[in-house]
Design a protein around this nucleic acid. Structure first.
Length: 575
RNA sequence: GGGCCUGUAGCCUAGACUGGAUAGGGCGAUAGCCUCCUAAGCUAUAGAUCGCGGGUUCGAAUCCCGCCAGGUCCGCCA
């Protein structure tokens, strides 16, 4: 890897190891990045005290004395129990710009890797439009896809299509039996919105009328038996919903590579294979003709720890098909990642245990997210107590439009303002959702979803637009710059931030932590705005300094653009 | 009844997995900055018993135990 921070880090680690060996200190070397101003890298010396009778401070001083010289390290400073390493700024700056000139628009991207990754996300029941309650799923999923792509992996996104459940059966019954005049008028002229009414009315009738309940039951039963006609009927019912979901996803820059219908695994008999294997497990039990795995030995607790995978009538269950799906995925990829709502925690754990029992090649890593609720409670498609994602998208774009008009109404054309509003509105939406850790509970509030200031996407997009604006006015060629001319503290801090980009991507990828990307970009944009304040670029008289600064602006532009791209957000050249 | 997740200023949030330097940010509030590359910006001030109580440790927001609050799950549902 040619990124300077990697080289510097590796070099320091190597030299530290030999220093410790020579001095007889034992313990883990924890190279960390210290608080601003204290240095570029640091190690705490607490852990080295175990074998020797010295204070951490004495050890730190000793390490500094014995530390071999390196061209990367300008000075080492002991503060308390820490050894702080200061990089040689000139060497660091020059090698940073070398890596930028080398990688150009691909700066930040990591080496290509051989492994294939399948990210399963969204997988919503196709019975109605996506609502905000589950909006985190596609956004987290897609961001993970983009993180892994940037980290060099070959990635495929999959939507596991639940085409056999009660939800779609209700929808299918509604579409085929209800009078369209009795379906409430949708607010949106989209196929999913036009169809969801059949589901809502259908599920209401299901509770009131036993005959209807019976008919829906038959649809479910026949699907599970693999009846082609029924599966086809259901398919025709949910197809428009799926089309609508797909359109909504596209609006927020998300594409699904493959939709995998659950019924596939019934059709190709792989569920039978799963059932046969599970039956052989010593944890398998039978209760009134139905088969289950006893989950107690695996630490599953609760009222009932039996995990059923085959009904007494011989049909399979959702989880059985899910196991078959995962076996299939394991054959097609090296790394499996699932993004699921927290309600799937137990089922996912059970599937994982079953997969291990039948010796699956790969076990998925699962990212769970908490639901977004409304101030009064949770959202529900059935009760039409929802904010649909389409409403949220429109609101965000509307608000963005008002803002652009307020600020630039006199200068920009209507078309331009609409373009910017779209980019800004959607950016704000994705950013607001992804900036929070998935497992944190979220309550949906319009004021917050539509927040455009501070730690929000428009702030970062604005910084990018500022950078582009400078570059669009430049007269100089930016080649062969002298990076050592960038000596202002704002310049140096900005360079250090930009240099971290590849490491941030690597860590976000390894830890599956999508929210660390927005945090980083906010830092970069913030630092760029300070540089913008302190170091005028175009008015600068000294041509060499001007060129070096232009280079820095361009580097920032690339990092912001690539970083926003990881979040599925467009970086506008103008705002 | 039990499992899992969450609890950090008025509000939102980072840090927790891998214990370590004065707990970072943002919104809102208050006070400033556009004859100078886009003020969606910048600067300053105020605001924190890190849910509560114990324990381990030289050192705990972070690890362990107990409690409280919210979410979620414990179907031959999906």
């Amino acid at each position: 890897m040619s990124y300077p921070l990697y080289i510097a880090r590796k070099e320091i680690l190597l030299k530290l190891e030999s220093t410790l060996l020579k001095s007889g200190y034992k313990g883990d070397i924890k190279l960390e990045i210290p608080p601003i101003g204290l240095g570029d890298f640091a190690i705490p010396c607490f852990s080295f005290t175990s074998k020797v009778k010295k204070s951490p401070n004495e050890i730190a001083n000793d390490i500094v004395k014995k530390f071999e010289k390196s061209k990367w390290v300008k000075k080492t400073v002991v503060k308390g129990a820490y050894v702080n390493f200061f990089l040689d700024n000139d060497i660091f700056k020059n090698s940073f710009f070398k890596s930028i000139f080398e990688k150009k628009e691909n700066y930040g991207y990591l080496e290509r890797k051989k492994e294939k990754v399948i990210v399963e996300h969204t997988s919503a029941n196709p019975n109605g439009p996506l609502h905000v309650g589950r909006a985190r799923n596609p956004i987290i999923g897609d961001t993970i896809v983009r993180i892994f792509k940037t980290a060099g992996y070959n990635v495929e996104s999959q939507f596991y299509l639940d085409d056999m459940g009660k939800q779609v059966a209700i929808l299918a019954w509604g579409v085929n039996n209800l009078d369209s005049k009795k379906i409430p008028k949708p607010n949106y002229n989209k196929p999913d919105h036009k169809t969801v009414g059949y589901y809502q009315v259908g599920s209401k009738l299901l509770k009131e009328d036993e005959e209807i309940s019976k008919q829906i039951g038959i649809i479910v039963k026949k699907s599970e038996e693999g009846d082609k006609k029924t599966i086809d009927l259901v398919h025709k019912a949910y197809a428009p919903v799926l089309e609508g979901i797909n359109d909504s996803l596209k609006r927020i820059n998300i594409t699904i590579d493959n939709y995998i219908p659950e019924s596939n695994f019934l059709k190709n008999n792989s569920t039978n294979n799963v059932v046969e294997k599970l039956k052989k497990s010593k944890y398998c039990g039978v209760e009134e003709g139905a088969y289950y795995l006893d989950m107690k030995p695996f630490g599953i607790k609760g009222r009932n720890t039996n995990f059923f995978f085959l009904r007494k009538d011989g049909t399979t269950l959702y989880a059985t098909r899910d196991i078959a799906y995962h076996l299939w995925k394991a054959d097609h990829a090296d790394i499996l990642i699932n993004v699921l709502g927290e309600d799937h925690k137990l089922e996912s754990k059970q599937v994982e245990i079953a997969l291990k029992l039948i010796k699956a090649k790969k076990i998925p890593k699962v990212i769970f997210y908490s639901f977004v609720s409304l101030p009064g409670g949770k959202m529900s498609t059935r009760h039409a107590r929802v904010v649909y994602i389409d409403e949220l998208i429109d609101e965000c774009i509307n608000l963005a439009y008002n803002e652009v008009k307020k600020r630039r109404g006199k200068e920009l054309s209507e078309k331009k303002m609409k373009e910017i509003a779209e980019i800004v509105g959607i950016g704000a939406l994705r950013y607001n959702i992804i900036k929070v850790q998935p497992e944190k509970d979220m309550e949906f509030k319009w004021e917050e979803a539509l927040n455009f200031e501070g730690n929000a996407s428009p702030f970062i997009q604005y910084s990018h637009a500022r950078a582009c604006s400078i570059l669009s006015k430049k007269q100089d060629e930016i080649r062969d710059i002298d990076a050592t001319l960038l000596t202002h503290v704002s310049e140096e801090n900005l360079i250090k931030n930009l240099a971290k980009f590849p490491i941030i991507i690597e860590e976000a990828c390894e830890g599956c932590k999508p929210h660390s990307i927005p945090a980083y970009l906010f830092e970069v944009a913030s630092q760029f705005n300070k540089f913008y304040r302190d170091c005028p670029v175009l008015p600068e008289k000294n041509i060499d300094i001007r060129k070096a600064r232009l280079s820095l602006v361009n580097a920032t532009r690339i990092v912001l653009k690539n970083g926003l791209n990881i979040l599925g957000i467009v970086a506008p050249v103008e705002m």
